[in-house]
């Protein structure tokens, strides 16, 4: 083994494709996390109501969570199909135009983020459900006496009470999102125009397509440090935020 000092790090800072891959991954998180929180919170809130076959709903939201990402990706690759894809056929029959889900470089990463949300949201529904059940009902009763609106109740009672759950969901989906790999690997191979090249996919390609093991290990180390910094920053901003 040859000792190369910091050469790999200098190379990393000049590697424009690596920085693009990091930006792509951050873009993915930017769509994925807010979408995930809103959808999971809404579904969890619906499920707190007493409603017929609630267990069935919960179980069906959770189904994609247990199924392999490989299956979900192969399935969604078809759903996103340009001509015969199910989603475009529905859009066209509704009189809306078709969308270039995977072939337009501006859209492709968002499409993958939507799919990832669909796959994981069931887990976060359950976590929010647990969080929502810890809010004492007496708070809502008191708010009713004061004449609070539904939005006020949500904003001033529910949201502060589930802040720890939101924090957990953000951290978990950040860590999960940073390891985005198999979805672009199967669906787009990183294209079009490298727009869905995630950092993890790039690290994999460096090691196992170009056989740059040492460089790939450097990228992995740097990327892991970046993940830790992002998570720590998130931790402090969310904990400070007294909503």
């Amino acid at each position: 083994m040859e000792y190369v000092g910091l050469d790999n790090f200098f190379r990393l800072f000049q590697d424009r494709l690596f920085w693009k891959a990091i930006l792509n991954t951050l873009l993915f998180l930017l769509v994925h996390i807010p979408l995930q929180i809103v959808v999971a919170l809404a579904l969890a809130y619906f499920l707190t109501q007493k409603i017929f076959i609630r267990g069935f709903f919960r179980a069906s939201f959770f189904l994609p969570v247990v199924i392999s990402g490989v299956v979900v990706t192969i399935l969604w690759q078809q759903l996103y199909g340009l001509e015969s894809g199910l989603i475009n056929r529905i859009l066209i029959s509704l009189g809306l135009g078709r969308v270039e889900w995977l072939t337009n470089w501006r859209v492709a990463m968002t499409s993958i983020a939507i799919m990832a949300t669909w796959k994981n949201v069931g887990l976060y529904v359950i976590l929010f459900l647990v969080g929502l059940q810890t809010v004492p009902t007496s708070y809502y009763e008191a708010a009713d006496v004061e004449g609070a609106t539904a939005w006020q109740k949500f904003r001033y009672i529910t949201l502060p009470a589930i802040n720890p759950t939101i924090f957990m969901v953000v951290i978990l989906s950040t860590i999960g999102g940073f390891s985005l790999f198999i979805e672009p690997y199967i669906m787009t191979g990183g294209g079009p125009l490298n727009s869905t090249l995630s950092a993890m996919l790039y690290i994999y390609k460096q090691a196992f397509e170009y056989y740059h093991m040492g460089y790939s290990a450097t990228l992995g180390l740097f990327f892991a440090l970046l993940i830790m910094v992002v998570v720590v920053v998130q931790k402090y901003t969310i904990e400070k935020e007294d909503i």
Binding site: F46, F57, S60, W118
Partner: peptide
């Protein structure tokens, strides 16, 4: 309304499979 919303959501998770 709630029931219809939940059914729609459940369908969007089950129907693709």
């Amino acid at each position: 309304i709630l029931f219809i919303l939940l059914t729609g959501a459940a369908l969007s998770f089950l129907y693709p499979f």
